[in-house]
């Protein structure tokens, strides 16, 4: 399998604080790749570097073999990377279908066609019945799924999900896991998850990277990672205490 996303020796500092330190990894095409770590490990910063919110201070990020680091967020999306936000940001004053239509307009310039595409996606994500609802009035699980739907509508090759399970109840988490598995299986979508909730990651990810204090301390299959002594000490150990 060729690597779809390659992150090589990437670092980012914030006024002296090393948020991401020399991180290297590759996400193969078709994988569900998870980045985990305790709070403050630099997960969201890493995510924002890939999504184009910041440019890295050092290192390279390549997508499909082309360098993308330093490109603005809209350009990153046009190249085929969709994202969600850790604190959900649907367009609150617009309806669910309008939210997703805006995403679909990237590849379908005709609004009527984009709306049809949006309806297909809403159908798959179980939001079709709520398509006329104001996005701002949805419950948190619905808003999280709406964000996934909106990002999917831009037809990404890689979907970046920032803590998409956080704040969900176990049944809702399972529902999200099923959706992600379905998307990955049916359309071969590559997914990069940034996640704090371990349980969900273990059941969905094919490969896991563990960050601690901005540095990558382990990478491997979920089973291998949880047995890694360094991971247990830094992350799981800390949680267990």
């Amino acid at each position: 399998m060729a690597a779809l996303l390659e992150v090589a020796n990437v670092s980012k500092n914030f006024s002296g604080l090393r948020a991401v330190a020399d991180v290297t990894f590759a996400v193969p095409e078709g994988a569900i790749f998870a980045v985990i770590g305790p709070n403050g490990a630099g997960k969201t910063t890493l995510f924002n570097l890939i999504a184009g919110v910041f440019a890295p201070d050092a290192g390279e990020i390549a997508f499909n073999g082309v360098r993308i680091d330093g490109q603005p967020p809209d350009e990153i999306c046009r190249r085929g990377i969709g994202r969600t936000f850790q604190i959900v940001r649907p367009f609150p004053g617009l309806s669910v279908e309008e939210n997703v239509t805006i995403g679909a307009l990237l590849r379908q310039p005709d609004p009527a066609a984009a709306m049809r595409r949006a309806h297909e996606i809403l159908w798959r994500l179980d939001l079709f019945d709520k398509r006329r609802h104001l996005a701002g009035a949805l419950t948190l699980p619905d808003r999280k799924r709406l964000e996934v739907a909106r990002a999917l509508a831009t037809e990404p090759k890689l979907l970046l999900l920032d803590e998409v399970m956080a704040g969900l109840r176990p049944t809702e988490t399972d529902r999200m896991v099923d959706i992600l598995k379905m998307l990955n299986k049916e359309s071969g979508l590559t997914i990069l998850l940034i996640e704090h909730v371990m349980r969900a990651v273990m059941s969905v990810a094919t490969r896991v990277l563990v960050l601690h204090h901005g540095a990558a301390i382990a990478e491997g299959t979920p089973d291998a990672v949880v047995r890694d002594p360094a991971v247990v000490a830094s992350y799981l150990g800390a949680e267990a205490v």
Binding site: P72, P73, D74, F85, R89, P92, I102, L106, T154
Partner: peptide, 26 residues
């Protein structure tokens, strides 16, 4: 309002960062 431009404007009005994440050159 019903054109692509109109949808994109509303996206920018509602949340500029989210609009950019959908590939819109704000």
């Amino acid at each position: 309002l019903r054109s692509r431009v109109g949808y994109y404007w509303q996206a920018i009005r509602e949340d500029e960062a989210a609009a950019r994440s959908l590939g819109i050159s704000t």
